[in-house]
Simulated scan of single mutants.
Amino acid sequence: MAAATPRVLAIILLIFGQLRTGRTADGTSKTFTFPEFPYKETGKNELLFREFEQACEQSGACRMLQQQGNSITKVRCIRECVSPSCYQEIYLPDQLEEGEIDVRLNSFKGCFMQRSGRPRK
């Protein structure tokens, strides 16, 4: 059981968005870290974030991507539109990839709430 402890810890860290590992082209593993911002998932916070997402989704550039059917490019566009500074800090060093589980989303939402001056109640 003790041998499984580091693996269990890595899974827990992955789930909570503190650590993400992957393989490089040469097969070696690498660890990604990203800035963390606290986010409290409340109805008001989710509603505010969703309003910004929808507005960005309807913006010219992101709407055009929707018509082209490229889902990951559309998600990137919307996130960057919602908060360019948070996007740059959290996603730009390691772009989202097709099929990737976005463990950074709550941190992005927390950054958005903090920088928009909205309370995180």
Rank of each mutant, 00 (worst) to 15 (best):
Q114G: 07
L47H: 14
E36M: 12
G27P: 15
F49M: 03
E51S: 10
G117M: 09
G69F: 10
Q114A: 15
A2R: 04
R20N: 11
C111D: 13
A3G: 05
G117T: 04
Q95L: 02
C111I: 11
E41A: 05
G99I: 04
G99K: 10
Y39Q: 14
L13E: 03
M113V: 15
C77Q: 11
G69I: 14
K109Q: 11
F16M: 13
P84L: 09
I90K: 03
T33E: 12
T73H: 13
P38D: 02
V8I: 05
Q88G: 00
S107W: 00
R76I: 00
T28K: 14
G22C: 09
M1K: 02
E57Y: 07
G43C: 05
E36A: 14
E98A: 04
K44I: 06
Q67T: 15
R115K: 10
A4W: 02
L13K: 08
T24E: 14
I15T: 07
A2S: 08
D94V: 00
C62I: 00
C62G: 04
Q68L: 06
I72D: 13
F108Y: 13
V82C: 11
C86I: 03
R20V: 03
V8C: 04
G110Y: 01
T5V: 12
F52Q: 01
L14M: 09
I101V: 11
A2P: 04
T28Y: 09
Q54Y: 08
N45C: 08
E53S: 05
F52V: 03
C111S: 07
C111Y: 04
R23V: 14
E80V: 01
C56R: 14
L92T: 02
G27H: 04
K40V: 14
T28F: 07
V75Y: 11
T24Q: 10
E98I: 00
T31L: 05
K121E: 13
G99C: 04
A25Q: 09
R63H: 13
L48T: 07
C62A: 05
C86K: 05
